[in-house]
């Protein structure tokens, strides 16, 4: 057997699998979205139906808020952990990255433990403090799984920045906030864009967390789920899925052009 033939054969299992279970199902999904009563006009219908439009806006707003907060928290923590060596640093780092492997449902449960009816805040604060099932609970849930993702990306980039640059700026008399604004953030910006895109795309598509928390909050994945299971509105569920998939893929694609690999996954 020639070497070239062997290398080609190595790709065959992947090609068969990707064609059967990735390419064809995606084509089927796109076709399904046009098979409803409205035909391809269904995409216009999304924009014309207030419920879908509100959902879309709400999902984008929550995801944006999560992205901004996760970026500021994780950048602060990430830069701090790269710049300082102290006892307990490794433990702190583990705590901040372990939730990476928690499925969205578990993250939802974590928020219920904090802000649910039997939650920590309800137990220690006077009055009835229950926020787990509100949009704020959803925000906290998304933040929970975004912090580790953003942190890892930021830290990988922060380790590559030469501390001498900051020292130089300080020697020239720059106050701390100027050092951060003029040296640190510009050097980190590709990583921040990538991390922000990961956080945003993950939050947009997060189903598990929303499923546990958001029984009456309309976010896009929940609406797709109810359209499919309760209303049996297959075409609309397919159309909304296509929109969601295109948006999250495009965001990550653009982000990858700014900096190396991005892995969203989960939520």
């Amino acid at each position: 057997m020639s070497s070239r033939l062997f290398v080609a054969l190595c790709l065959v299992p992947l090609a068969i699998f990707a064609l059967t279970f990735l390419a064809l199902p995606i084509v089927r999904l796109i076709l399904s979205s046009g098979e409803g009563e409205a035909g391809w006009g269904i995409y216009l219908q999304i924009l014309q139906t207030p419920r879908y439009l509100t959902t879309l806006v709400q999902t984008v707003l929550v995801s944006l808020a999560v992205t901004l907060v996760a970026l500021s928290v994780s950048t602060t923590a990430g830069v701090f952990l790269t710049r300082n060596r102290f006892r307990g640093r490794a433990v702190l780092l583990s705590i901040l990255t372990l939730p990476l492997a928690f499925p969205g449902v578990v993250v939802g449960f974590m928020i219920i433990l904090l802000g649910g009816r039997q939650g920590l805040f309800n137990a220690i604060l006077p009055g009835h403090v229950v926020f787990a099932y509100s949009i704020f609970g959803l925000f906290l849930g998304y933040l929970y799984f975004s912090i580790p993702r953003v942190l890892l990306t930021v830290m990988a980039a922060a380790e590559k920045i030469d501390p001498a640059l900051e020292e130089a700026a300080r020697t020239l008399g720059a106050p701390q906030h100027r050092v951060v604004l003029d040296v640190l953030l510009p050097a980190l910006s590709p990583a921040l864009i990538a991390a922000g895109a990961i956080a945003f795309a993950t939050a947009m598509g997060a189903f598990g967390t929303a499923f546990t928390l958001a029984t009456d909050i309309d976010v896009l994945p929940m609406v797709i789920y109810t359209e499919f299971t309760l209303s049996a509105n297959i075409a609309m569920a397919a159309a909304l899925s296509v929109c969601l998939g295109v948006v999250t893929w495009a965001i990550l694609f653009v982000a990858r052009m700014f900096s190396g690999t991005t892995v969203a996954a989960g939520g």
């Binding site: 990707a18 990735l22 199902p25 999904l29 947009m204 997060a206 969601l244 998939g245 999250t248 694609f253």
Partner: peptide
């Protein structure tokens, strides 16, 4: 291009992929 294609399941939410599989199979 192939790497980008097989990485689609990381970028497309699982819910959408599952719907696609259900529609076809």
């Amino acid at each position: 291009a192939l790497e980008e294609f097989i990485s689609l399941p990381l970028a497309i939410p699982g819910l959408a992929l599952a719907l696609a599989l259900l529609q076809l199979y």
